[in-house]
């Protein structure tokens, strides 16, 4: 199971890199979302997979009974998801704003900061 998930994460990384290199801001954003998903899954996977045993403590017990899922990567992934969302939202607005100002989403045409030098 872990092996299949490793392959899935690799596929997500490959897809996201390919999209980010496309030179179009919308595709770049798609790639960004896929990449943060891949990162979250990586953290999650590295903590080990435990089916059907959420990290909860039952009523009256001092700690979890039996082996439960690794709580630490879950907490980290939770934080990562939210921050990834913040990043995405900001990037989306930035792209939107860039389109309004520059009239294009083609990154090759966005040369305001580093204009083409006369050779």
């Amino acid at each position: 199971m872990e092996q299949l998930l490793s392959v899935l994460i690799g596929a997500l990384v490959a897809g996201s890199v390919f999209l980010m290199l496309a030179g179009h801001l919308l595709r770049f954003l798609f790639g960004l979302i896929l990449l943060s998903n891949a990162a979250n899954l990586t953290i999650f996977l590295a903590g080990g997979l435990t089916p059907g045993a959420p990290p909860l403590i039952s009523e009256g017990a001092e700690g979890p009974t039996g082996t439960v899922a690794n709580a630490l990567p879950q907490a980290l992934v939770l934080t990562a998801i939210v921050i990834g969302f913040g990043l995405f939202a900001f990037a989306l607005i930035l792209a939107f704003r860039a389109y309004q100002t520059l009239g294009t989403l083609d990154t090759d045409a966005m040369r305001v900061a580093e204009p083409e030098e006369a050779q």
């Binding site: 872990e2 690799g10 997500l12 990384v13 490959a14 290199l21 990586t42 996977l45 590295a46």
Partner: peptide
């Protein structure tokens, strides 16, 4: 490049897990 990065990631994760 995308494929290379994907394969590398998978390989690392396979070893980690």
């Amino acid at each position: 490049l995308a494929l290379g990065l994907g394969v590398t990631t998978t390989a690392i994760l396979l070893m980690v897990t």
